[in-house]
């Protein structure tokens, strides 16, 4: 990938991270950690990878995206707003009574949201259903879903993994956000779901492991996934939970709370400092 492209994607990702913090701060609650860890992946999906049209969010041939780890809706909303599906201003209404931006994604209410999620383990199955439907129609649309590493403790994830391989859903790409943390602690201490690569391999998937914050690796992974025939792909994306905000990085306590004003200011200045380096 050319340096200028890396730079421009990094700028978008930085704005998305800023909007994640802004929206969670305004809501006074929400899930910043796992939203920040996927900001680069979301940027790549919405600005490079997926065939979508903000002017026509429901066209039938569009690629589908399912945020299986629905609690990180702030990242999805920020990406959709950045891409022009709705005004960035609206992000301030996240989780408010009158807002269409529900705490977890609502496909009936938000332009660009393809599936309602929030209960962990179900989104990947819905993505399988979409991918199967696409194949039956011989339509070219592809389906992307982002999973949490803690989420991978859900049995249904592996039911879906079996299903996707069985029906040869090579139009399906799952991105596993391997940030190493869930609510009660590190994934390896709470209920160790690793090794993910060997598990997915054993389930019949094409497995690619990348650094979730390196656009070159992200691009290479999605390009490789397109070339695979006869099996689904999982991109195991090694990420830093809370990425970009100093005190949130690898800090379990920032899974599901909003910063108060003082720490909000720190977060914004951290992100703005990163923004400076991208000028």
């Amino acid at each position: 990938m050319e340096n200028s492209k890396v730079l421009s994607l990094s700028r978008i990702a930085n704005r998305i991270r800023r909007n994640i913090i802004e929206s969670v701060y305004n809501a006074k609650c929400g899930h910043p950690g796992g939203s920040l860890s996927i900001a680069d992946i979301m940027t790549y999906l919405y600005f490079e990878e997926m065939n979508i049209d903000p002017k026509n969010p429901d066209f039938s041939g569009r690629d589908r995206f399912v945020l299986s780890k629905g609690h990180t809706a702030p990242a999805l909303y920020a990406a959709l707003a950045e891409r022009g599906f709705f005004p960035t201003e609206d992000l301030k209404t996240l989780r408010k009574t009158a807002s269409y931006l529900q705490g977890h994604p609502d496909m009936k209410g938000v332009p660009g949201v393809d599936m309602s999620t929030g209960s962990l383990g179900q989104g990947i199955s819905a993505a399988c259903g979409m991918a199967l439907s696409s194949k039956l129609d011989g339509s070219p649309f592809r389906v992307y879903t982002v999973l949490g590493d803690g989420e991978s403790e859900e049995g249904q994830v592996w039911e879906a993994a079996m299903f996707a391989a069985h029906y040869k859903l090579d139009n399906l790409v799952a991105i596993l956000d391997l940030n190493g943390l869930q609510i009660d602690g590190p994934i390896t201490e709470v209920m160790n779901p690793t090794p993910h690569d060997e598990k997915f391999l054993a389930f019949g998937w094409n497995v690619i492991t990348i650094d979730a914050h390196d656009f070159n690796e992200i691009e290479a992974a999605f390009d490789a996934a397109r070339k695979i025939e006869g099996k689904p792909t999982v991109i195991i994306a090694r990420s830093i939970k809370g990425k970009g905000v100093s005190y949130m990085e690898n800090a379990c306590e920032w899974h599901g709370q909003a910063p108060k004003e003082d720490l909000y200011k720190v977060a914004i200045s951290d992100l703005d400092a990163i923004g400076e380096t991208l000028k």
Binding site: V66, S125, A126, C128, G129, S133, Q156, E159, F163
Partner: peptide
């Protein structure tokens, strides 16, 4: 795998 089946059905329905 009934839970998966139900969510797969949801995905199919979401495509119309």
């Amino acid at each position: 795998a009934e839970g998966n089946m139900i969510s797969v059905a949801a995905g199919i329905a979401a495509t119309g």
